[in-house]
């Protein structure tokens, strides 16, 4: 780890100014991923701008019934928040399915969105990785990739996004607010993370100097039920092999509102738009669910050793839709 300077700005604008003025600086939230990567030599900031004490730790309902979540709200507080548990349970479930109690107490909402891949080659600076060093190559494609992407990957990168929270936020149509040197902008969570294409060093659309200040959940849709389900190698404290977040409402025996997102399959949370389009208005039968999910996963391009993820995602999604249908019927 290189030595670095440390700054603790008092305001968002001060933080953003500092970030813009120091290329190679990093914002420090909980640090659970950043400090880890600094120890590995993957991140080498010359300046850390500590944003963890900025007044961004609030959660308030919006006028239309949504929820504003400050960027420094800790994952455990977000998961435990009564409004979240009662109205956006998939988000709470996703958070609680990730990491450990200790890490959730430390990790922030903004930081969670900026988690970097756990691809073993990315984490090992003695090996090539296009995400770390563009053009150096991707050994994962031929190497160890059981846990890596089956959807949306490129010749240059087969990494997956490790976040559980982001998958739920993608399904919940959340937005991210960014403060940058050129002002404030809002981005859909589904547009926030990128596919790797030929520049996998960019995980997200965040611009230099931009700081995540809040995440906004739109109001829950009436009559909709939601869940997050994750499959993993260990019963707890393990990243997803595959996961699914789903929101469903049923009207007259047919799917009304539907929102479906996968985790663990791609470089970003994978919003299943193809499946959603097929499901909207469809009957709530296992067959209809299977057809829609299969249509979505037809785009999958598994690597040598990770084809099981397609089957796993399919099972998780169909299982989630069946369960939500049962629940929707009883609400």
């Amino acid at each position: 780890m290189k030595p670095f300077a440390y700054l603790r700005p008092a305001t968002v604008s001060e933080a953003v100014r500092a970030g813009a003025g120091h290329p190679g600086s990093r914002f420090l939230g909980g640090g659970t991923n950043l400090v880890d990567l600094m120890k590995l030599g993957v991140e080498t900031p010359g300046l850390l701008i500590d944003v963890s004490r900025l007044p961004l730790d609030g959660m308030t309902r919006t006028d239309d019934g949504g929820l504003r979540i400050g960027a420094t709200v800790r994952n455990s507080d977000l998961a435990a928040h009564p409004e979240v548990r009662n109205h956006w349970p998939a988000l709470s479930q996703a958070l609680l399915a990730g990491a450990s109690g200790q890490l959730r107490n430390t990790a922030t909402t903004g930081g969670n969105l900026l988690q970097r891949t756990r691809c073993p080659y990315f984490q090992d600076v003695s090996k090539p990785c296009n995400k770390r060093i563009p053009g150096s190559g991707c050994p994962a494609r031929e190497g160890t990739h059981r846990d890596l992407a089956v959807l949306g990957h490129s010749q240059d990168c087969v990494a997956t996004n490790p976040s559980d929270m982001a998958v739920a936020l993608a399904a919940l149509d959340a937005t991210v607010q960014l403060h940058g040197p050129e002002g404030v902008r809002t981005v859909q969570v589904t547009d926030f993370h990128r596919l790797p294409a030929d520049n996998p060093d960019q995980d997200t659309v965040i611009r230099p100097g931009e700081l995540i200040t809040e995440v906004v959940l739109p109001p829950p849709s009436a009559g909709a039920v939601s869940l997050y389900r994750k499959a993993r190698d260990r019963a707890s404290y393990a990243f997803a092999l595959a996961s699914v977040a789903a929101v469903l409402s049923v009207r007259d025996g047919r799917v009304d509102r539907i929102s479906l997102a996968f985790g663990g399959l791609a470089h970003r949370p994978w919003r299943a738009r193809v499946a959603e389009d097929l499901l909207r208005g469809a009957s709530t039968t296992g067959d209809a669910f299977a057809r829609a999910v299969d249509a979505e996963l037809a785009a999958a391009r598994p690597l040598r050793d990770n084809g099981f993820k397609v089957d796993l995602a399919r099972r998780l999604a169909i299982g989630a839709l069946v369960e939500l249908t049962t629940r929707a019927a009883s609400t």
């Binding site: 440390y6 909980g30 640090g31 400090v35 880890d36 455990s76 450990s100 200790q102 890490l103």
Partner: peptide
């Protein structure tokens, strides 16, 4: 942050002290 052996309480809440920069 992968084993928990370093767990301490920070302002009453448990955390992995190996991932906390002291200055912060």
């Amino acid at each position: 942050g992968q084993c928990g052996a370093c767990t301490v309480l920070v302002d009453g809440r448990r955390a992995n002290s190996c991932l906390l920069l002291a200055v912060a």
